[in-house]
């Protein structure tokens, strides 16, 4: 038997390992999270992230095999994130993958983290119908892309400054919330009313995003006055973000007709984004694909599934770090 791929993901602060079959069945997936370590710093502290990866990666690999009840000799190969991400963290994953590949005599290939995200919506069940419009919204990335098939991707836009996730974390910090700010802002926003007219940057034209102006507006407001409830600030901020994301997605869908609308990345967990995306999909007559949250955030299974694509297409990238890997690369 050799019908599983081991996926290794260490681009940021999660050590994530999974075993995945060719059609996306997740046989096991283990994630060792560092949230508690980084909470103290209000964000990911790269040196500590790398130290933590080196402690946890081998036990996490072992746990993934134990959970799957299979032996390493039963795998086809190993896929490991080669970028984009934090250099220290990526190097731990990559060098671990190379060592395992030698010891088990299995091929090791380097995979683009972003391509992992794009494929995450097909984990466990095939949800995506092509061509698909994909909105990736995470701590590291924000972009719209159209996928003609799993390998052929056209990037339509990206952010000129902050990613949506960064914006959530920074506003979270301004409101005194723990890292990561996203889930806490989401919760707080439900208790408030969107009464503050924050700017919707670049709302009226094009597909590009920009969030630094919105972030600055929140900061200015909080510095100027205590007159607003935090819950109302959160609700108004989330509303501004959701309106921008949905408006741009609508424009992209009109310009590039698609069968499915896929939202991936950690920010896809936001309940208001999910609700607004459903409305938009109904209006546009496309199928909405929202992978379960555990696949929307960083995980090893999405890397393993992308690795299958690479193997099938014969794209064998060496496991070498490339920090600023873009979507158009493999």
């Amino acid at each position: 038997m050799s019908d599983l791929i081991l996926g290794i993901e260490t681009s940021c602060d999660d050590t994530a390992i999974a075993l995945v079959s060719e059609n996306g069945d997740v046989i096991s997936s283990v994630i060792s999270s560092q949230i508690e370590i980084h909470n103290e710093y209000g964000g990911v502290y790269p040196e500590f992230a790398a130290r933590e990866h080196i402690q946890t990666i081998i036990p996490t690999v072992k746990a993934a095999f134990d959970q799957a009840k299979i032996s390493p000799k039963d795998i086809k190969g190993i896929g490991v994130t080669r970028g984009p991400g934090l250099v220290g963290s990526l190097l731990v994953g990559i060098n671990t993958a190379i060592g395992l590949g030698h010891g088990w005599n299995k091929p090791v290939i380097g995979v683009n983290h972003l391509r992992g995200h794009l494929r995450s919506a097909d984990l466990e069940e095939q949800r995506v119908k092509f061509p698909a419009m994909v909105l990736l919204v995470s701590g590291g990335h924000t972009f719209l892309a159209q996928m003609k098939n799993p390998m052929e991707v056209q990037v339509l836009s990206s952010t000129r400054d902050d990613s949506v996730g960064e914006c959530f974390d920074k506003v979270g910090r301004m409101l005194g919330l723990d890292y990561p700010g996203g889930p806490k802002i989401d919760k707080l926003a439900h208790k408030g009313k969107p009464t503050i007219p924050f700017p919707r940057p670049m709302m009226d034209k094009g597909l590009e995003f920009s969030f630094s102006g919105l972030k600055a507006a929140v900061s200015r407001l909080l510095a100027a006055t205590d007159a607003h409830e935090d819950a109302d600030v959160a609700a108004s901020f989330v509303q501004a973000i959701v309106e921008v994301l949905i408006k741009k997605s609508e424009r992209a869908l009109k310009k590039h007709p698609s069968k499915s609308f896929v939202i991936v990345g950690g920010v896809a967990a936001n309940s208001q984004i999910r609700a607004a995306a459903q409305k938009l999909s109904d209006k546009m007559g496309v199928e909405l694909c929202l992978p379960p949250i555990k696949w929307a955030t960083d995980n090893g299974a999405m890397i393993a599934l992308a690795t299958w694509d690479y193997f099938k297409a014969g794209i064998i990238k060496p496991p070498k770090v490339q920090l600023n890997l873009t979507m158009s690369e493999f």
Partner: peptide, 14 residues
């Protein structure tokens, strides 16, 4: 870190 990660994983897999 690179050397130690490689050493650990090679030792583990062997």
């Amino acid at each position: 870190r690179t050397g130690v990660a490689f050493a650990n994983s090679l030792a583990y897999s062997l």
